[in-house]
C-alpha cells in the first residue's frame, strides 16, 4: 500500500506539524521520519521536506542537513521517481543536495521576510502541481532570510526551455517583473520562486503552501499544491522492493 506522505525531521526543522496538518486536511496521511532513519517507510508515496532551520542553518541553509541519512534516503527514492516537494528550508536542502539546480542566496534586502506574496504557476502536470493550471495566480506566504534564487544564466535558460520553473513571483494580476521589489521581494533571478528537476518529480519552492490551506488563516490558495502531492502519493505505483529506495 502506498499513499503515505513522509515528512523528514532534521533537527532544527520547524514546519513539520504544519505540513502534517495540511496533508491531513488535504485528505492525506503523513508520518514523521527521523533524520537518522536510513530508509523511508515502505508505504511512502511522496516526500514533503518541511521548512525551518535544519542544523540552525549554520554554515549555510541546508548545507549540513543534506548529509543526514534521511536526506540520502530521499535522494535515492527521488532517483526512482518518488514525488518530492521541498518547501523553504526543504527547498534549500534539495538544492544543496544537488537534487535541484541553483542556490538560495540572502534576500536582496538582507532582512528576513514573512509576508504574503503572489506566485504564478508556470508548469502544471508535475506531482506538486497537477491540480493547477499554468497561469494560476496563488497568494501564499513566504518566510525566509535566504530565498533569492540564483543560478548561472545558462542554467536559468535551460530551466526555462525544459519547463523546470514551477512558480514565479508575480503581482496580484499575474504580471511577472523580476526588477520589481514589491512583487519579487527577495530579488530572485527571473523571479523564480520554485523549480523542479528535469523529470519533474522533485520540486522545491520558497513560499509555504501548507500555510495557505484554510480561509481562516487568510488564504487557501496553497491547498491545491498540497492536494496535488497527496494525490500523487496515493496514485504512485507500489515500490518494487520493500522500503522505498532503502537498501
Amino acid at each position: 500500500m502506498t499513499g503515505l506522505v513522509a515528512i523528514p525531521i532534521i533537527p532544527g526543522v520547524n514546519c513539520e506539524h504544519d505540513v502534517a496538518h495540511a496533508v491531513r486536511i488535504a485528505g492525506g496521511r503523513s508520518a514523521f521520519i527521523h533524520h537518522t532513519d536510513r530508509a523511508l517507510p515502505a508505504e511512502t508515496g511522496a516526500v514533503y521536506i518541511p521548512g525551518g532551520f535544519a542544523y540552525g542553518d549554520y554554515l549555510r541553509a541546508g548545507a549540513i542537513a543534506r548529509f543526514t541519512p534521511v536526506v540520502e534516503a530521499v535522494a535515492r527514492a527521488a532517483a526512482d521517481g518518488m514525488p518530492v516537494l521541498g518547501v523553504c528550508n526543504g527547498f534549500q536542502v534539495l538544492c544543496e543536495a544537488g537534487l535541484l539546480p541553483g542556490a538560495l542566496a540572502r534576500n536582496v534586502g538582507v532582512r528576513f521576510l514573512c509576508q504574503d506574496v503572489h506566485v504564478r504557476l508556470e508548469t502544471a502536470g508535475t506531482p506538486a502541481s497537477h491540480r493547477l493550471k499554468a497561469g494560476n495566480v496563488l497568494r501564499i506566504p513566504i518566510n525566509h532570510g535566504e530565498g533569492c534564487f540564483t543560478a548561472p544564466a545558462e542554467v536559468l535558460d535551460l530551466l526555462e526551455t525544459r519547463n523546470q520553473i514551477l512558480v514565479r513571483y508575480c503581482a496580484a494580476d499575474g504580471t511577472v517583473d523580476p526588477a520589481d521589489p514589491v512583487s519579487n521581494p527577495n530579488g530572485s533571478l527571473r523571479a523564480i520562486a520554485g523549480v523542479t528537476n528535469p523529470s519533474g518529480n522533485v520540486a522545491g519552492m520558497m513560499p509555504h503552501p501548507e500555510r495557505a490551506c484554510e480561509a481562516i488563516l487568510g488564504s487557501a490558495d496553497g491547498r491545491p499544491i498540497v492536494e496535488s502531492l497527496v494525490h500523487a502519493a496515493q496514485s504512485a505505483p507500489a515500490p518494487q522492493s520493500a522500503g522505498a529506495g532503502g537498501r
Binding site: 554554515l59 549555510r60 549540513i64 548529509f67 538544492c95 542566496a105 543560478a151 548561472p152
Partner: peptide, 9 residues
C-alpha cells in the same frame, strides 16, 4: 563537499 556552495560562493 560542504564548506562552500559553488553556485553562490
Amino acid at each position: 563537499k560542504i564548506l562552500a556552495n559553488p553556485v553562490i560562493e
